[in-house]
Design a protein around this nucleic acid. Structure first.
Lengths: 257, 257
DNA sequence: CCCTATTTTTAGATCAGTCTAATAAATTTG
DNA sequence: CAAATTTATTAGACTGATCTAAAAATAGGG
């Protein structure tokens, strides 16, 4: 309760976008280099150099020439705030306005810069303080705390039974496809073999559908939780990490209505 | 159904703001002069001169130097579209997110430029196609048709009984005050005397409250409908224009929840 | 350790939207 | 009707975000 001695320091939506991207890159344990940031934002490298320098000047990140950027506490705080807005908005669009999970990202991308804190707190309450967005990604809470995920990437998973935890790719085509073949957060599936170096990965979604084949790119954007019960035909489960689903609160999941 | 041969011609939110203001001024039967537009937008006159010229060039309005601007069909269409978005958003904020009527304007002002058509059509349906916003202003329909209002301004009204139709002033302080004294759309009130040239206008809101005194400015932003039943103590009703309330569909009115 | 390839930064420009100060047109008034 | 006042336009400049092209730094491979 130590008062808000933090100056409000409003930033442009462009700045918000830069911070978001740096956070995303850092979360992927990569170096936020000029070119990487540029690729994510689809701007020229030179533009990023300028902007990173500017953001360093206002104390939102550290910037070492020829190296890249690192968020400061203040910068990270802002970035997480945007992330929260983005994901809450996605959930709102999905749950209240009936958007498909492939439609929410684009709209949230614009709204996250336009809505007020009041708006955010109202939809948060309306949705009963959801812990995940429609893609299964964790929604940071109002204080900026983020759930630690202990899911694993499908491209790394050993054969076994899993439950889809999140999909970290917002391409509408791809998401529409996953939806069509019945792959969504909470979908159970089993994996007969580890992802090959080349070629598609074969999955069997529960609910007796056709097997699904995914490219490497695709399998890298799907994260799963191992299911401990009902071990698969042949291979034994990995071991310890049976974190068993309840990473968040029960909530309403990500069902379509 | 003659196809959309209209190019989508996306405009900046700045342009949207200019169009909106010109529409508003035209609706008030005034000339959209440089300085008037500048006052509404709180920018320098010189800025408006430039912008009006630019908007003329892209065919959104006519512009005569030293005279002012007039919307073209295309410009008016765009302006009405924004107006619709604005008012629908206000209604949404009020009805769904529980905003007070003094809070909705500012938020809608930002959102109107950020939301997609899908968003608008979804909230329209969710609200059951409302005909008025929380201030009682008509919401243009999806085709851009606008209800003709046959209300009259309190500053012009003869003594008699009336029902508040709309309040055309978005100042939060003022609206909070009206709310406090119980003046909202649909509130009935009676007027003992015509608004004086100088000094406050005295109103008696029904529901046995204290009389309310309004300045000229204030009384000019409140529009009412004459009530034909229960004529007031002394003066007879104006005459013909008893349009009797049902200007829109019944809807949910503008109640707070 | 030098040369090439890649990545990054610098330099210089552009565009939209804005400003102030100065000038010019229109309007009001003595 | 001409002077005074108001309103509008021009001129010149700035800011934030972007670009392209050229120069510089870093990183690898012989």
């Amino acid at each position: 309760m130590a008062a808000d001695s933090q100056k409000k320091a409003t930033v442009s939506s462009t700045v918000e976008d830069y911070l978001k991207v740096v956070l995303k890159i850092e979360d992927m344990k990569q170096r936020a280099s000029t070119s990487r940031v540029a690729r994510h934002l689809d701007v020229a490298d030179a533009t990023v150099t300028d902007m990173l320098r500017k953001l360093k000047k206002v104390g939102l990140l550290e910037y070492k020439p020829y190296y890249g950027a690192t968020l400061t506490r203040k910068g990270r705080q802002m970035a997480v705030r945007i992330l929260r807005r983005h994901r809450l908005l996605e959930m709102f669009l999905h749950q209240v306005l009936g958007y498909g999970w492939e439609q929410v990202h684009q709209e949230a991308e614009r709204l996250e810069h336009a809505v007020s804190d009041l708006f955010i707190s109202r939809i948060d309450a309306l949705l009963d303080f959801p812990a995940q967005d429609p893609h299964g990604e964790a929604i940071p809470d109002a204080r900026g705390f983020r759930q630690v995920e202990d899911d694993l990437c499908l491209s790394e998973a050993e054969p076994g039974s899993y439950s889809v935890r999140k999909v970290t790719n917002s391409d509408p085509e791809f998401l529409a496809y996953l939806d069509k073949v019945g792959l969504r957060p909470a979908t159970r599936l089993s994996l007969q073999e580890k992802a090959p170096f080349q070629g598609p990965l074969k999955l069997l979604p529960e609910s007796g559908r056709e097997p699904v084949y995914l490219g490497l790119e695709a399998s890298r954007s799907i994260f799963v939780l191992p299911l401990k019960d009902r071990p698969p035909a042949s291979a034994p489960l990995p071991e310890g990490r049976a974190s068993q689903g309840s990473v968040g609160r029960p909530g309403r999941g990500a069902g379509k209505e």
